[in-house]
């Protein structure tokens, strides 16, 4: 357990960090998401579970953060790579790594993102000029050069941090575990609380006021069920250790079941909406026909093709 990460691991992680921004921009396969970053980094570093936990936590933190209109967003993907790599190589606690490494790195990377977007203006100007020169292949070439600012904006910082940051992080872990226990506990608490930010951001983008009833339903149903299930689980586990004849498996609450209840509500809403649309269209076509006395029925425009 020392802060060293093998050279091949550094190189693979750097390559992945360069691929992920490419994927994020145009392919969008989800491989660039923090959960995948956690899984892949965990696999490279030899601890998939820890990677998934860190990736999952950071995923929840940025759940509602998207890029709109080309603004830079907090780069939780690179944050996950570094947090996972250092957490595994130095033995840092997963929640602490999320708050102490993941988030600061993710927000620092906004700067390199801006730099990348800025550098690309150079190639844009070249394209502007090449159009006048009618040099078609050069236009395409200079467009594709745009990939370099992008991948380097992730690759360089990730490489430098992985290569040279190890000793610093492992010293920090030692201090955190001994002299600054309160801080390390605090960072773990922060790591556990960060998903709350993700949920709040997400709610900002969703029509909360309109669907407030369903927010309450989802929260309360799950709060009750999860408490119930957890209690039954601990009761059952204790019982089976006390009494030998007592057997049975106890699972935690099924989130799929909870989501299905929500899906039911959503289907109802969809049906209500389409009914409403049909009605308004009927009314308007009736008005049209009574005013113009023509038989021009305009249906088939919106609900013409089912599904």
């Amino acid at each position: 357990m020392h802060g060293n990460i093998m050279v091949w691991q550094v190189l693979l992680l750097t390559l992945y960090s360069m691929y992920q921004i490419w994927d994020e921009l145009t392919i969008v396969s989800s491989l660039s998401q923090p959960v995948w970053a956690g899984l892949i980094t965990g696999a490279i570093m030899g601890d998939v579970t820890k990677g998934l936990i860190i990736g999952g936590s950071l995923q929840l933190t940025v759940l509602g953060v998207g890029t709109f209109g080309g603004s830079s967003k907090i780069d939780a993907n690179s944050g996950t790579i570094l947090a996972t790599a250092f957490s595994i190589s130095t033995g840092m606690n997963a929640s602490t790594a999320v708050a102490a490494i993941g988030v600061p790195v993710a927000s620092l990377m906004i700067e390199t993102d801006i730099l990348g977007r800025f550098t690309n203006t150079f190639f844009q100007h070249r394209i502007d000029r090449l159009i006048d020169e009618e040099n078609y292949s050069a236009i395409e070439r200079n467009y594709l050069y745009g990939v370099f600012p992008w991948i380097l904006s992730r690759g360089i910082p990730v490489f430098l941090a992985l290569q040279f940051g190890g000793n610093f992080v492992s010293t920090a872990v030692k201090v955190l575990d001994t002299h600054l226990k309160w801080l390390s506990n605090g960072l773990a608490t922060a790591g556990a609380l960060l998903p709350a930010v993700g949920f709040a951001i997400l709610l900002r983008y969703l029509p909360v006021k309109k669907h407030i009833a369903y927010l309450i339903l989802g929260f309360t149903l799950t709060a009750l069920f999860s408490t119930l299930y957890t209690n039954v689980q601990s009761l059952g586990t204790t019982m089976s250790t006390v009494s030998k004849g007592f057997a049975g498996s106890f699972n935690s609450v099924s989130m799929v079941a909870i989501a299905l209840i929500g899906l039911g509500f959503a289907i109802n809403e969809y049906k209500r909406n389409t009914e409403k649309q049909k009605l308004t269209e009927l009314v308007s076509s009736y008005k049209d026909s009574s005013q113009e006395k023509s038989n021009d029925s305009e249906d088939g425009e919106i609900y013409g093709d089912e599904d």
């Binding site: 309109k210 669907h211 309450i216 989802g218 909870i258 989501a259 899906l263």
Partner: peptide, 11 residues
């Protein structure tokens, strides 16, 4: 969006 709001509540 209804489903989204509901799921956030559950999460």
């Amino acid at each position: 969006t209804l489903l989204g709001v509901y799921v956030v509540g559950a999460l």
